[in-house]
């Protein structure tokens, strides 16, 4: 790294870390055990972890095929389609929630059909999962597509000449090579789902134990008890940081293992 970049790197770290440090500094340590073990806090944490886990699985199951399709699709419409798929990344949270309402709400495009089928999403935990999947999906699609794009496809071609079917090639050649990217995509999708706020509030509502995830509980607690909001926010950050630290190591650290396969 050129020496002139060092101050910029320090500045970048400060921009990201200072607000987190400042939040931790606001913690009221004496009340922390009581605040973190409050039934409302535990309900919200449990709901957040469960919904984020389900949403992440959905992102993996659906985002991987979509990323694969985008990487191999040859069409002049591809840039436009890719940009649209990534739209949830830039949509303001509340607009994302409104968009989901227009699609799956009781008066939405599919809402009437869902309602007739007895699948009303309104104010259910399933609506939280839909909102989280919507906002987290782009991370999985992008990770898969860019990793595939970076590979030449020689190994797949070779597997094909050896008589392997497309599915066999996918499971035994492509996916193992994509492992680092898939882990990155999964971790980012989980973190994004865990922090999801605006779309959930607008689309799913806020009911303890049903739709009130940790971010929504934090938003509500802030009205009456700023200490509780800060404690829960630090808990949310701690959970996310732990997950990321456990699952995610820089790509370079993995390369030797990946190259050995």
């Amino acid at each position: 790294m050129p020496r002139w970049m060092a101050p910029l790197a320090v500045l970048a770290a400060t921009v990201v870390l200072l607000p987190i440090v400042a939040t931790v500094a606001r913690l009221d340590w004496s009340r922390l055990p009581e605040l973190l073990t409050a039934p409302a806090a535990l309900d919200a944490l449990g709901l957040s972890l469960a919904t984020a886990a389900i949403s992440t699985c959905l992102c993996l199951m659906l985002g991987l095929p979509l990323g694969y399709a985008l990487a191999t699709w040859r069409s002049r419409f591809k840039p436009a389609v890719r940009a649209l798929v990534l739209a949830p990344l830039v949509l303001p949270p509340v607009v994302g929630g409104l968009a989901l309402l227009y699609a799956f709400g009781r008066r939405g495009l599919l809402g009437g059909a869902l309602e007739d089928a007895g699948l009303s999403l309104a104010f259910t935990t399933a609506a939280v999962v839909v909102a989280q999947t919507f906002v987290a999906m782009p991370f999985m699609v992008l990770a898969t597509e860019s990793a595939l794009g970076a590979q030449a496809g020689h190994h797949e071609a070779l597997a094909g000449t050896l008589g392997a079917s497309r599915s066999t090639t996918l499971w035994h050649v492509t996916l193992p090579a994509l492992r680092p990217a898939l882990i990155t995509g999964t971790v980012l999708a989980f973190a994004r789902a865990l922090g999801e706020f605006g779309a959930t509030l607008t689309f799913a509502g806020s009911m303890p134990g049903v739709t009130r995830t940790l971010p929504l509980e934090i938003y509500l607690q802030r009205e009456t008890d700023a200490d509780a909001a800060v404690a829960l926010a630090v808990l949310l950050v701690a959970v996310a940081v732990t997950v990321v630290a456990l699952a995610y190591r820089p790509l370079s650290a993995r390369t030797p293992a990946g190259a050995g396969r």
């Binding site: 008066r107 309104a122 104010f123 509030l201 509502g205």
Partner: peptide, 18 residues
């Protein structure tokens, strides 16, 4: 079915038909 964080959110849910 939901305990919203603000009166605007309550109004929004009814206006949207949810």
């Amino acid at each position: 079915s939901s305990q919203e964080s603000s009166v605007t959110d309550v109004l929004g849910k009814v206006a949207a038909g949810q």
